[in-house]
Design a protein around this nucleic acid. Structure first.
Lengths: 191, 191
DNA sequence: CGTCTATTTGAATGTACTCAAAAGCGGTGG
DNA sequence: CCACCGCTTTTGAGTACATTCAAATAGACG
């Protein structure tokens, strides 16, 4: 059934009794997303924490000058939202777009708060997710500071082969903070 | 008393009953740290989550080529550790050094786990801390991708005036990912 | 005062960008 | 099924941003 992936994802971190699992399922909504559709646009209120069931998404910032910077990719079994705006109830800074036809399971902020109230172990789950997200971003900062563009590219493709399978080079370039032209020359450099 | 700051910090996010506060205090250790002393060195086991009571710290990565990259600064009322290594019980990648004579309140991983068991609201506290840390790092990634060195510098000094008051330009340069020479020319550029 | 490190300045270099144009690829409609 | 259109990728020339190396100056500390 469509919720098996999200349950497996959550149960990797906390174990749920039958009644808890049932309660959790009641809070979730399954949603199909067409290729190129946005599940969030800058300026929107960010109401949902989204689990990618199938497909792939990209979250990016669009500057006034029109430059895109990819903040994250999410393929199946990942969570994605504009966390800052979700938590602080501010207008979204990011656009989140489906790279291909996808399906997500989403959890609204209200339902998440309800889960925190009813199932304290959900606090633990979310803590672990946030811990992992934090250490991942911190490592990314460190790599941006200490590695060259070429090293960051090779690091990216070896670290995230599942993402590479879904995204264009141009999108990878905006994730690495370089131009697509320069990424092309890096790739031509050898293999 | 020496624990008033950490209590205020924690009680910003969760409210504690008298007995809970007492239990929490029993898990903490106060520690003085001399200027330039390390509370963590790369390769060490990272056992503690540290609250800065007084003073200032810098966490940095030292590459094989000898290049330093500052991952974070922490002044009073901040928490600091090598989170990845603390969580996953791996050898530290970072050095954490006192910039000046400081005092910290530290919480060992064992005591933290005990707190999670005994005071479930501590899961919530830690979740909030991790959420904030995550969104802060994500914003830093975004700024590294979308801003020039000069913009990042001005952003840094306006965002973290309390840090600026404690650190050298060279240290700021390693946080921004530029050379101290170039930071100097940015500053000469105007005000 | 003397030493050590931080900061500034400048010249030469390199890394990554801009702009432009060609080539490749995928999807769509005839 | 093929031809065309739009977007991605490649390639190249010229440029800008940031680095390296070197040396002078300024500050901090014993």
């Amino acid at each position: 059934m469509p919720y098996s992936k999200i349950l497996a994802n959550i149960e990797k971190h906390v174990s749920l009794a039958e009644g808890e699992r049932h309660f959790l399922l009641e809070q979730l909504e399954l949603k199909e997303v067409q290729k190129k559709a946005y599940i969030l646009q800058a300026g929107d209120t960010c109401r949902y924490f989204n689990f990618v069931n199938e497909g792939a998404f990209r979250a990016y910032y669009l500057s006034k000058e029109g430059k895109e910077s990819t903040v994250m990719f999410a393929v199946s079994d990942w969570w994605i939202t504009d966390m800052h705006c979700f938590i602080n109830e501010q207008p979204a800074m990011l656009h989140i777009q489906a790279i291909e036809h996808s399906s997500i399971v989403r959890l609204s902020k209200e339902k998440l708060n309800l889960l925190f109230e009813e199932l304290p172990k959900f606090e633990r789950f979310f803590r672990v997710i946030m811990q992992n997200a934090y250490t991942r971003e911190q490592l990314r900062v460190l790599e941006n500071l200490s590695l060259t563009a070429e090293e960051r590219y090779h690091n990216f493709i070896s670290k995230y082969p599942r993402i590479v399978a879904h995204v264009t080079q141009k999108q990878i370039a905006t994730y690495l903070g370089i131009t697509p032209e320069f990424l092309s020359t890096i790739r031509a450099g050898k293999t």
